[in-house]
Amino acid sequence: MRLAEGLVHFVKSVYASTMLFGVIPFKQNPLWSLSPMLAPMAFLLFLSVYGIREIVPYALIGGMTSIVVANSITMESDAAFNRLILKIESMFVLTRGGLIPYAVGLALGNLINALPGMLVFGALLWTLAGVNQLWSWAVFLGALAATWAIVSMVGYYISTFARDIRDLWVYSPIFTGVFSYLPPVFYPLERIPWTELKYFAYVSPTTAPARLMQAAAGLVSITWTEALLLWLLLLVHGSIVFVLLHRRLRRPI
């Protein structure tokens, strides 16, 4: 009974935070969702202009991933802005659920900005690349959700170090680049020439979800064992960041 009550309260807190920091601001300025869409869209345009059709599905999966990454890593500046400038974080700490539902709501709010871009790229993937299997989309959803959760936690973790909001403006574009364009997100892992570098690519939390999505779209072939390992890797990534974040939030100030 207590658990159910706690869960209901958690969901209500997340909902409140999402509405206040995500839905209502998004209604005020829907153009926010356009900005992270532009770079992958431009990349797609170049490929179309040059007629490199076989790479288009990779660009679409990479585009979806980078839109989620760009909108999730902004957690670092959003959380820092709420803490340092608005100072509203301290008000939300003083609620039954405390910081966690507030942070989840903030991250969900950022995801709302990603939805239009994801829908556009998803529709293109369906029509241009012919990805129309239900299980493929289930894998996409799972992989993108994991990317959102991990990158949002990374963003929140970084935000806790900020003493001035300007410290953080530089990090969003850097992390978007490092997580989206350097690892094999827009291209298959097999294109990396050195084995060591292939393993190193898995340090990025976007490599595993991108590979899973590429496999689900039929672009690369992976075994069930590899698929399982990739999901496990995502779990490991998530656990490491969660532990780091948890320790950071519990630190004596």
Partner: peptide, 11 residues
């Protein structure tokens, strides 16, 4: 009510 806090401009 934190010192010098202000609400979000967009809400």
């Amino acid at each position: 009510v934190p010192q010098e806090g202000r609400p979000s401009n967009l809400s």
